[in-house]
């Protein structure tokens, strides 16, 4: 029992360190373009989240109804709604309210909207 737990922790630790180092070095070495890098490190973070959820937090391994898993999934849903929603709304507001000087606005419109 405790040996299995030990293996679980070691696995979690080693893979977390690995994922952290990979994320760090792709950014420091500028392995790809900025856009691709952003998605890469975000993906690596989600991967590490899953690793730690399984190996450190032992999610979904409880007896009976999986209330922990259920609440976790609902929390993730709410977090996604609030974060993505806020970013979408705020970006949209910024765009519509044109939070910039008239000159900047002219340049922006020329570059991004072709007017």
């Amino acid at each position: 029992m405790s040996n299995r737990k030990l293996i679980s922790y070691v696995t979690g630790f080693v893979s977390s360190v690995g994922l952290t180092l990979v994320a760090y070095y792709v950014v420091v070495d500028r392995a790809f373009g900025v856009g691709a890098l952003t998605y890469t490190v975000a993906g690596l973070a989600v991967l590490q989240l899953i690793v730690q959820l399984i190996f450190f937090l032992h999610i979904g391994q409880e007896k009976g109804t999986h209330w922990k898993l259920v609440t976790f999934i609902f929390a993730v849903l709410v977090i996604l709604i609030v974060v993505v929603g806020s970013l979408w709304i705020m970006h949209n507001l910024d765009y519509n309210m044109m939070n910039m000087s008239p000159d900047q606005q002219k340049i922006y419109m020329h570059n991004n909207e072709g007017i």
Partner: peptide
Amino acid sequence: ALFWHFLDVIWIFIFTIVYLMGSLS
């Protein structure tokens, strides 16, 4: 232990979103 692991998970996202992505742009 649960609390401590959770703080580590939060830090992964701080490390990624604040520091790594922040030093990109």
